[in-house]
């Protein structure tokens, strides 16, 4: 065993020479800038010079802002919805009749696969952010593993979901009108809301979850794999460790947006519109609900004589 260790250290010595041969000329009190072809676990001194760029920014954000922002945004979103529920209250629609078939079994399966992924990823993400309060150790370590497992499930559900909803999720003029009246959520009255199959709020969630999701997967993968080599970095003169630092910063900020919209999605489907969850269970949406909440879609169906 020791012989193997010595041999490996010998190889490491050779590797260190290899590394050293590639660094540009430096003075003794200045660390060199590596070509970016070093792995973090073995690179060392190369970090020092460029530490001020991304290293210090990461430390500053992690120490002062990330936890505070996550806490503030989560509590803020929850309080807003609690007030909305108490003051304005949920919307109720007649659920008589057969309803309109909106989600095929395939769409529902894909949706629930992604939903399970989010249920695994988002709470475990919060567990890591507030790991101090949970005392760290095995509980938070397990959360870290579950966070990765949830990601795999998200990757699987990502492509079918993106393709099946891409067209109806494209922006339309209804979205501007929807935003101007905030989807009719600020009034107790039943108002006709301009929206196609999906309203602007749903579209916002879709695009943050999809495009944001790609960035979250990418930045998360960088942190997960840690020792990887991207030759493209050499061209940009970026250190691999700096790329991971940027990834961590991005992952945190984007995580705030995803978490906020995820809570919004839960509130809307579970509380704000009574019975709206049914459409994701049996595929049928109440006709009354479609008439008001997706008026353009309703008109289109009427015109095509589908109702």
């Amino acid at each position: 065993m020791k012989k193997i260790l010595m041999l490996c250290l010998g190889f490491f010595g050779l590797y260190a020479r290899e590394i050293a041969g590639k660094v540009p000329l430096v003075s003794k009190d200045m660390a060199p800038h590596s070509g970016g072809d070093l792995l973090v676990s073995s690179q060392m001194i190369d970090n020092i010079l460029h530490y001020q760029t991304w290293g210090e920014l990461f430390v500053y954000l992690q120490v002062h802002w990330f936890r505070l922002l996550f806490f503030g945004i989560t509590v803020g979103v929850l309080v807003v919805f609690l007030l909305h529920y108490l003051i304005i209250g949920p919307k109720k629609f007649a659920h008589s009749g057969k309803g309109i078939f909106v989600y095929s079994i395939f769409k529902r399966v894909v949706h629930w696969a992604a939903a399970l992924a989010f249920v695994l990823v988002i709470p475990t993400g919060f567990m890591m952010i507030f790991g101090k309060e949970l005392g760290g150790g095995d509980l938070v370590l397990t959360a870290r593993y579950v966070h990765s497992i949830g990601t795999v499930l998200f990757i699987v559900s990502f492509i079918p979901m993106f393709l099946m909803w891409l067209i109806p999720m494209l922006p339309s003029f209804d979205d501007i009108k929807w935003f101007l009246m905030l989807g009719g959520y600020l009034t107790k009255k039943k108002v006709v809301v301009p929206a196609g199959q999906f309203n602007a709020g749903q579209k916002m969630w879709f695009w943050v979850a999809m495009l944001g999701g790609i960035v979250m997967i990418g930045s998360g993968a960088m942190m997960y794999f840690q020792d990887f080599h991207l030759s493209i970095l050499d061209r940009f003169g970026l250190d691999q460790i700096d790329l991971i630092r940027v990834a961590a910063i991005t992952h945190n900020f984007l995580g705030m947006a995803v978490a906020a919209l995820f809570i919004t999605h839960l509130y809307m489907s579970l509380f704000a519109i009574k019975g709206s969850l049914d459409s994701m269970i049996d595929g049928y949406k109440s006709e009354d609900e479609v008439r008001y909440m997706h008026s353009s879609f309703y008109k289109k169906l009427k015109k095509e004589d589908k109702i």
Binding site: V40, S41, Q43, M44, I45, D46, N47, I48, Y51, G55, F58, V59, Q62, M128, G131, G136, G137, V140, L141, A143, R144, M223, Q226, I241, I244, R245, A248
Partner: peptide
């Protein structure tokens, strides 16, 4: 928990 944040924060790797 082995998250790696200390590595991102460390100037010396």
């Amino acid at each position: 928990i082995g998250c790696g944040y200390c590595l991102y924060a460390c100037p010396f790797g």
